[in-house]
């Protein structure tokens, strides 16, 4: 007998390997973000499997609720908790990983054999149940037989939302500095340590590059270190090519001196050009943070 190839079979053999690959990717990936993306892909594949099982409502709900809402929540938390945290390879309990792997393989063998031995035999199909529409059929059950359970889930969602608000709320540890207090503190600092009370210089955005990691230049062509956020500098993002940054400055000075030479008849241009030429033309400077901890945002 030639086996009948239906759309369901095709969908199963496409999306079942995809979902297994996504699940394995989630377990194997070192970085949490890669795990989350694998899991999102696995959830989409699972949604497509629902669609192949005559469950169009759950297919849409799966994609909206799981891939849309839950995975986004995971990613938000990941951004707060730290994207670049990787697992430690140190075992707190000795042999725990091996024992866990052996247990899981035994469990998997058991459950797959049990499930594979045909507890589910009838391939009934949902044509009669879905005759009046899948969403309508589900609505009849939810708002009919299970209306009390449905109301309870409303209470559950409400409690969960309240609990999240209460848990995530944090009291601020110190009082917020008012404008007058900040002015007083800055003036005092200027009197005691000579620290500039003015705002920090802005970054060199739009000077040569459209990026805040580029520092501003001081009038003599050197780099204003305070113009780059300490966080960027600590992460090693703010590495700039001095020569490239100074090129415009050098060209301007050279032209200025040439014009001056023409007008006054002096011969300063070669000397200035020599002074301006960098000893190492491809010198790169990593901006070091000199003050402040990286967590405090730069005051502008």
């Amino acid at each position: 007998m030639i086996p009948l190839i239906t759309g369901q079979v095709v969908a199963f053999w496409i999306f079942a390997p995809l979902s297994i690959a996504g699940a394995l990717g989630m377990v194997i990936a070192r970085k949490p973000v890669h795990s989350a993306i694998s899991l999102a892909g696995m959830m989409v594949a699972l949604g497509c499997l629902y669609a192949s099982l005559d469950a169009p409502f759950l297919f849409v709900a799966q994609i909206i609720v799981y891939t849309g809402a839950i995975m986004m929540l995971f990613l938000f938390t990941m951004m707060i908790v730290g994207v670049d945290t990787t697992d430690s390879l140190i075992e707190t309990l000795r042999g725990q990983r091996v024992a866990a792997a052996i247990f899981v393989f035994a469990f998997a063998a058991f459950i797959i054999v049990v499930a594979g031995n045909g507890i589910v035999t009838g391939a009934g199909g949902l044509e009669t149940a879905n005759a009046g529409g899948n969403v309508e059929g589900i609505a009849k059950i939810i708002f009919g037989t299970y209306v009390f359970a449905f109301e309870l889930t409303a209470a559950l969602l409400m409690v969960a939302a309240l609990a999240a608000i209460v848990l995530a709320h944090g009291e601020s540890l110190r009082k917020r500095e008012t404008q007058a207090e900040r002015a007083r503190r800055k003036t005092l600092e200027f009197a005691e340590t000579g620290k500039d009370p003015g705002p920090l210089p802005g970054p060199g955005v739009y000077a040569r590059h459209n990026s805040i990691e580029y520092p501003a230049l001081l009038p003599d062509g050197s780099i204003a270190e305070k113009s780059v956020s300490p966080t960027l500098a600590i992460r090693g993002v703010a590495v700039v090519e001095n020569d490239g940054l100074r090129a415009a400055h050098r060209a301007a000075i050279t032209e200025f001196v040439e014009v001056q030479d023409e007008n006054t008849g002096s011969d300063e241009a070669p000397k200035v050009a020599e002074e301006l030429a960098d000893p190492g033309s491809v010198e790169r400077t990593a901006i070091e943070t000199t003050d402040g901890d990286p967590d405090t945002p730069k005051e502008q």
Binding site: T6, A16, I20, A23, V27, L49, S88, Q96, A100, G116
Partner: peptide, 25 residues
């Protein structure tokens, strides 16, 4: 497609989830 295949797939995914829960820190 027999629904059994879906149940087996579900068992495989459950086992992978259990593995991840037990070995990831």
């Amino acid at each position: 497609m027999s629904p059994n295949a879906y149940v087996v797939l579900s068992a495989i995914l459950f086992s992978i989830g259990l593995l991840g829960f037990l070995i990831r820190r």
